[in-house]
Amino acid sequence: MEIRFSEQERVLMIALFGELDHHNSITARERIDLKLSTGSYKKIIYSLSGLSFMDSSGIGLIANGCKTAAAIGAVVLVYTQNEKYLKMFQLAKLNELCRMIETEKELNTLWK
């Protein structure tokens, strides 16, 4: 899988591409943790629209990101329109840790 980071005005976009499973989540988590530890962010947006597969490892990855973000005082937003991913996030009550963005319109208000 591939991770692309981009930044604007202390907002960090983490765009994930390819397949996110347990195998891939190990290195993804390390790379994201390293990135979060080096910057001063107020918002972190995970974009999942480039993923072709995600299992519950995605929940673990984002929940971990929320913990790291809370430690640096940042809020986490997750952008996806995939109903299966949203279902898994809902089961894990991930919406208590971060905000779900389900439309491109909403994403565009946060990211120019």
């Binding site: 519950s56 490892s57 929940i59 673990g60 898994m88 894990a92």
Partner: peptide, 10 residues
């Protein structure tokens, strides 16, 4: 670790 304890629930 990476997993969320959601495997069986999923």
């Amino acid at each position: 670790e990476e997993r969320a304890g959601m495997g069986f629930t999923v």
